[in-house]
Amino acid sequence: MVRFMDRLRRNASATPDDGTDGGQRLQPFRRREMLHRALFTISHDGPDGPRRTWTVDVRMKDLGWVAGLYLDGARQEEHDVPAAFAVPGGTIEVKASMYGITRMHLVLDSGRERRLAPVAGTAEDLRGRLARRHPRLSRTIGVLAIAILVVNLALAVPQAIEIVTGLPPIADHVGSFTSPVSTPPWLTAVLVFAGIVAATERVLMRRHNRLLDIETIWSSF
């Protein structure tokens, strides 16, 4: 707790910068930022009292993401994602893929986890509203996303094996493999686009499966 308080004092005395977050105060979310910014918040004890508002502002930076931690709107620190922010009684863990936020949890010292809620107006919030207002439609979208990822995964595996076994060192020892599936360029483009949309849907709902969502890596090529 002493180290945590020292860090807060250092951050409070820091000179405002002109970085992406616009200085020391949390900037309002704008709809035009939906594709490259996400905001999540949670009510949790602060260093000087209970029920304080902690907010994580995640923005796209170059080829990755950067996350800023705010306490009642005042910036505390900033790290590249994946990031772990120490807060009283726990740690806020942040992870992301190229499609969005994959983990945003407060992990308490007891081991219990609490998920941070998306701020109103963000893509995650809008997708959550759709799920609450139209659960049947939401489930249909989720099933379609899974089906698309399964199809793309089934196509990606033999193609990946063909690429790997085509490398001279491997081909000389085990031989080469030719994928039995060949898709025309237009269909490949459609499947890649559909895979990106499906992967984004999964991220917005913060759903992840180690086998199924490995396809999200392939669909980015």
Rank of each mutant, 00 (worst) to 15 (best):
S110I: 05
R3P: 01
F85P: 00
H79K: 12
H36R: 03
T53M: 05
E78T: 10
P118A: 09
R133S: 12
V150K: 06
V174R: 05
L137S: 12
E113Y: 01
P158N: 14
E78F: 02
I146Y: 04
V2S: 14
L26K: 01
S176Y: 05
A74Y: 04
M104E: 07
V94I: 14
D45M: 02
R115T: 15
L116K: 08
G73P: 07
H44R: 10
D18T: 05
R37H: 07
V151W: 09
T183R: 09
D62L: 02
V150M: 10
V94T: 08
I101D: 11
M1S: 11
L130D: 12
S176T: 15
A117Q: 12
G73Y: 00
L153A: 13
R75D: 08
T183S: 06
P168N: 07
Y99L: 10
T140W: 10
W186D: 12
G68A: 15
A74H: 09
V151F: 02
R133K: 14
E93Y: 01
D21N: 07
G100C: 09
M104D: 03
A38E: 09
A131W: 10
G19Y: 06
V119M: 04
H173K: 08
I163V: 13
H208F: 13
L69S: 00
D80I: 00
R112F: 11
A156Y: 15
N11F: 08
M5T: 11
A67N: 06
R103Y: 03
M60Y: 03
T55E: 11
R37A: 07
F221N: 11
G64L: 08
F4A: 12
R52S: 01
V143S: 08
I141K: 03
G142L: 04
E78Q: 09
S110G: 00
A96Q: 01
A194E: 11
Q27E: 07
P180N: 14
G142Q: 08
V81Q: 04
M60L: 06
A86W: 01
D21E: 10
P28N: 09
A194L: 15
V174N: 08
A96C: 00
Q24G: 06
L153M: 13
L211Q: 05
S13L: 15
V94H: 07
R75V: 00
V181K: 02
M60Q: 13
L144N: 06
H173I: 13
D109C: 05
T102M: 00
P47T: 13
S182F: 00
A84W: 08
I217T: 09
T102A: 10
K61E: 13
T53Y: 01
T122H: 03
D18G: 05
V87N: 02
V107T: 12
G121C: 03
G89Q: 11
L126E: 14
P158G: 12
R127F: 03
M1E: 15
G73R: 04
L155D: 14
P158Q: 13
L39V: 04
A67C: 07
S219H: 01
L149Y: 02
L35Y: 04
W186N: 00
T183M: 15
G68T: 12
L204Y: 00
T178V: 13
A198V: 01
A96G: 02
R114S: 14
L39N: 01
V181Y: 15
R129F: 08
W218M: 13
A12N: 06
D21R: 13
T15H: 09
R139D: 04
I217P: 04
H134Q: 14
D172Q: 13
